[in-house]
Design a protein around this nucleic acid. Structure first.
Length: 420
DNA sequence: TCTGGGGTCCTAGGACCC
DNA sequence: TCTGGGGTCCTAGGACCC
C-alpha cells in the first residue's frame, strides 16, 4: 500500500485568487475572524517574512508598501471549495481521509496508475488546477508522516508537476538529513526543545535514535513518529469521519463590552450554532461550559477570565435546555466592571442520541424533538436564525469585524459571477 | 486603536471497586 | 512497627494539529 497526501497551497488565498485572477502575482493575505491576524499568506507575502498568525496591525507598513490585497475570511466559500477539492480527488482514488479543509490523505493499491504512479498523480494535480483553479502538491510515501515530508518538499522546492515521492533509502536519507525535527508532523515546540537537549535536531537523527530510549523520554506518540520515519506505518487511513467528541463555539467581539445583556446574546448565538451542529451528527451532550474573558493583550484593562460547567439532568440535543443552562452559567460567572472581549461555549460528554440510557423519572418529550426538527428545517430553508431563542436577542451588537469579505461566489445566487 | 477558532490524543493521578 | 494488589473509570492538563 502506498500513502498519498494532496494539499492546496495557501488554501484561503488560492480560493480568493480562483475567482479573481487579478490577484495572481500580487501579495495576498486572508485574515482570521474579527480581522485580527493573517492566517493565510500568498508566497509573495511569505517571502516578505510575514509569519503565520501575524497581527494585522503589526504588518500594516508592509501592507501599504507592497499593496497587499487583504481579505476577511469567507468560510462559506472555502467550505464549498473544499468539497469540490475532495470530489476531484475521489475521481482518482476512492480511499480518502479528509484530514482538514485543504488536506486529503489517500491510499493507492498500485493498480490504478498502470505502472506510472508519478504521471497518474501529476494528471490529478493538473485536473484540480484546471477544474477549480487551485494549485496543489502531492507527496507519496510508505507512511503518512513521510507523506507529509514528501509534500513539504514538493511545495518548498516547487517540484515540477507538483508531485514528489519518497521511497528509496537514498532519497529518504537525503530528505531527512536536512529536515529540522520541528518540521516533522507531530513534533511541536516543546518536543523540539526537549530533543535538542538530547542532541537530536534533524529528522534523520530522530529516525535512527534508539526506539525504547525515545519511548521512555517522551511517549508513544513520538515513538510512533520515529517508526513512521523508518517507513513502518503506524497511522491508518481514517476514511469515515468520526463524530466530534466536543463542540466548541467562541468568538471575539468587534468591540469590548461591559453589558451582561450583550454577553447573554452572544452566548445564546453560540449555543444555537453548537446545538445545530450537535443534532446534525445525531448526538446528545451531557454538559455545557460557558466562558467569558477580557482582552489578554490589553495593558490598561483589568483582566478577568471565568468559566463554569453545568451538568444537565439528562443528555440532550435541545437548544432550549442548553440556553437555560447557559444563562444560569453566565449569571454565576459574570462580574460587573470588566470590559469583556470574548465569550464562548463548549458542549461536552457527547454520545449517540439513539443509545442514551434514561432513568425511571425521565419523561422524554417527543414534542421537543419535533420542535427542534421544525426549527432546523425552517432555518435551513429561510436562513440561519430566522427562528431563534429569545435569549439570542435581535441586535447582535457584539458581532465581529469582517470588513473585507469577498462575495460568496459559489453559495449565494446573488454573488455568482455574472448575476446582476 | 488593533492580536482567531476548533479540534484530537496521551498521561498522570485520584476515586473507587473487589 | 505495622498498613495488599490489581483493575477501571474519570478528569485535568499538556502537547500537538490545521
Amino acid at each position: 500500500m502506498i500513502f498519498g497526501l494532496c494539499d492546496v497551497n495557501n488554501f484561503y488565498v488560492s480560493c480568493e485568487r480562483s475567482f479573481d485572477p487579478r490577484l495572481n502575482g500580487r501579495p495576498v493575505i486572508v485574515l482570521s475572524n474579527n480581522d485580527g491576524c493573517a492566517v493565510a499568506r500568498s508566497n509573495e507575502v511569505k517571502a516578505l517574512g510575514v509569519k503565520m498568525g501575524a497581527p494585522l496591525h503589526q504588518i500594516q507598513h508592509l501592507v501599504k508598501q507592497h499593496n497587499f490585497a487583504v481579505f476577511s475570511s469567507n468560510y462559506s466559500l472555502y467550505a464549498d471549495m473544499s468539497h469540490r477539492f475532495e470530489a476531484m480527488i475521489e475521481k482518482y482514488t476512492p480511499n480518502i481521509e479528509k484530514y482538514s479543509c485543504d488536506e486529503m490523505f489517500f491510499q493507492l493499491d498500485g493498480q490504478e496508475h498502470r505502472g506510472n504512479l508519478g504521471a497518474y498523480m501529476r494528471q490529478m494535480v493538473q485536473d484540480i488546477k484546471r477544474g477549480l483553479g487551485l494549485p496543489v502538491c502531492v507527496g507519496l510515501a510508505p507512511t503518512k508522516t513521510l507523506c507529509k515530508i514528501a509534500n513539504h518538499y514538493a511545495k518548498s522546492l516547487s517540484v515540477a508537476g507538483g508531485v514528489l515521492t519518497l521511497f528509496s533509502e537514498y532519497n529518504l536519507k537525503n530528505a531527512l538529513e536536512i529536515l529540522p525535527v520541528n518540521e516533522i508532523w507531530g513534533i511541536g515546540r516543546k518536543h523540539t526543545e526537549h530533543l535538542a537537549k538530547l542532541g537530536i535536531t534533524t529528522a534523520l537523527q530522530l529516525r535512527d535514535a534508539e526506539r525504547k530510549w525515545i519511548r521512555k523520554r517522551f511517549s508513544v506518540v513520538v515513538e510512533r513518529t520515529l517508526m513512521e520515519l523508518r517507513g513502518v506505518s503506524c497511522l491508518e487511513l481514517n476514511e469515515v469521519a468520526e463524530k466530534k467528541k466536543q463542540i466548541v463555539c467562541t468568538r471575539s467581539f468587534g468591540e469590548k463590552t461591559e453589558s451582561q445583556t450583550v454577553l447573554r446574546e452572544a452566548i445564546g448565538y453560540h449555543v444555537s450554532r453548537a446545538c445545530v451542529d450537535l443534532r446534525s451528527q445525531q448526538s446528545v451532550a451531557k454538559s455545557i461550559t460557558v466562558g467569558i474573558r477580557t482582552n489578554p493583550f490589553s495593558k490598561q484593562d483589568r483582566q478577568c477570565v471565568r468559566s463554569v460547567t453545568i451538568e444537565l439532568p439528562y443528555p440532550t440535543d435541545n437548544t432550549c435546555d442548553f440556553q437555560a443552562a447557559a444563562t444560569q452559567a453566565l449569571n454565576r460567572i459574570y462580574q460587573t466592571g470588566y470590559k469583556y472581549k470574548k465569550a464562548g461555549i463548549m458542549l461536552n460528554g457527547l454520545s449517540d442520541k439513539g443509545v442514551v440510557q434514561y432513568d425511571l423519572f425521565h419523561r422524554h418529550q417527543p414534542k421537543d424533538d419535533a420542535i427542534m426538527q421544525v426549527m432546523d428545517q425552517i432555518n435551513a430553508r429561510y436562513g440561519k436564525d430566522v427562528l431563534r431563542c429569545g435569549s439570542q436577542g435581535f441586535e447582535a451588537t457584539w458581532v465581529m469585524n469582517s470588513n473585507r469579505k469577498s462575495p460568496r461566489y459559489t453559495t449565494d445566487w446573488n454573488d455568482i459571477i455574472g448575476a446582476s
